[in-house]
Design a protein around this nucleic acid. Structure first.
Lengths: 240, 240
DNA sequence: TATTTTAACCTGTATATACAAGTTAGTCAA
DNA sequence: TTGACTAACTTGTATATACAGGTTAAAATA
């Protein structure tokens, strides 16, 4: 479990929402009631509720209470910072990862720019194909700074690199910036993916940062366009 | 200005980051220093800093301080909940909105599902083309529940509907769910947009909710795929 | 009966205090 | 000189209190 009180309350409430104990449209107990249930202070409850609100699970209404949203219940592909393994598990579809390339290399100009490294530094290059229901849908090209990831194996890449990085290497992945756009198919796409008749792929560029704001991974994820879907949740800030 | 202390501090710090007074990589003053500068409590400062952190402007590092990220400085198209007008202003490109349709209608099956309305209710339908640098890039189809928006005019639609809704009608837009996917061009796309040789468009479905979690707008935004770009910022939650 | 007022809730903001825990730089001892 | 320790910072969490202001339903009033 979590050692943090407010995080464990967040998780507890979240699982109650996901299990349907708190149903969409329903009011969850008031802050004061939760204070009694969890035997804690109101500020701690509020931290948990604010997390739920930011992530789109509840809506807080002043003077009334918090109601459960059903916005999130739709399958949400890449939203947030979820690894392919976590995603595949959520969707419950049969999937497989095929490691096509795994090597240490020196960065070219493009990578020097994207990973903020010098020509002397070593870079891990991992090329993987994601197969869903038997079709080669996604081509993932990952580049890690070897300074942060000294060792990698085909086995690790087939399972989950993130799990290895976080659990084994104790790297704290903190945030990521993603860019989406559509690009013409390359020969590489046609070689590794079942692109069918399509002339374009959806490209997701991912810059992943550690806790201390150092960039340690650059990923280019190329999706067959008919299989791509992305869901986003956003709150509007009101200044006034 | 903001009446909220922590929001006005957030805005003040944000403008200092955007103006370059606080530069990327730089440490901003510590929480205790900010407490003195703004003559407030530490919790209030922390609220402002947490907002900056969630929105990707700073990274807080325990024991060290907060450093300014340069992740956000790239142009960010549709991230967050920004209207086309706000976006066009940010990018500084010459743009124009052309209202192609504006009418009150009854919902068809698709809209009844998307807007959660009955056959008897009235719906505003607004079809607009967004022109950027002389090219017709985006086709926006907006549907508003007339219950929330009793009046609309061509003039309002040409300027900014959001400005009208928030300033005039005092509607509080709270959050939105977005879905992205790629779809084949329809005849409507070819009629209104300069689709060139492309066979597909990027579709953004947008569900917009008010403060009390009631769905009041459904938008379908169809983008020429070579001009589509989306940037996202995400933080990873660590449980434990 | 119809309307207003009030009391009891709700969430939002601001403040103060305490301690835990990570970082850093200087000090002291081996 | 080297290493361990300490003191002074930093942010993170938990608690308590106070009051603004929105909501609701019951009670009081016209």
């Amino acid at each position: 479990m979590s050692e943090n009180k407010y995080l464990s309350i967040y998780n507890d409430l979240l699982s109650k929402i996901e299990k349907g104990i708190f149903k969409p449209g329903m009011k969850i107990p008031s802050e004061n009631q939760l204070v009694e249930q969890y035997e804690t202070s109101r500020e701690t409850i509020r931290k948990a509720l604010n997390l739920l609100s930011e992530h789109g699970y509840i809506q807080k209404i002043k003077g009334k209470g918090s109601i459960v949203l059903d916005v999130r219940k739709f399958d949400f592909p890449i939203s947030g910072l979820i690894s392919f393994k976590e995603l595949a598990q959520k969707l419950g579809k049969p999937s497989r990862t095929i490691v096509e390339q795994l090597e240490v290399m020196k960065p070219d100009e493009m990578l020097k720019k994207h990973l903020h490294v010098t020509s002397r530094e070593d870079i891990w290059k991992v090329v993987r194909v994601r197969e869903i229901e038997g079709e080669r849908i996604i081509l993932d090209k990952d580049f890690f700074n070897k300074k942060f990831v000294p060792f990698l194996s085909k086995d690790i890449c087939e399972r989950s690199i993130y799990e290895y990085l976080e659990k084994e290497l104790q790297l704290k992945i903190s945030f990521a910036k993603k860019e989406f756009f559509v690009e013409e198919c390359t020969d590489e796409d046609r070689m590794y993916l079942h692109v069918k008749q399509y002339t374009h792929v959806v490209v997701v560029r991912n810059y992943v940062y550690l806790d201390d704001a150092s960039l340690f991974q650059y990923t280019e994820s190329r999706h067959r366009l008919d299989k791509f879907r992305f869901v986003d949740f956003a709150r509007r800030i009101h200044l006034h």
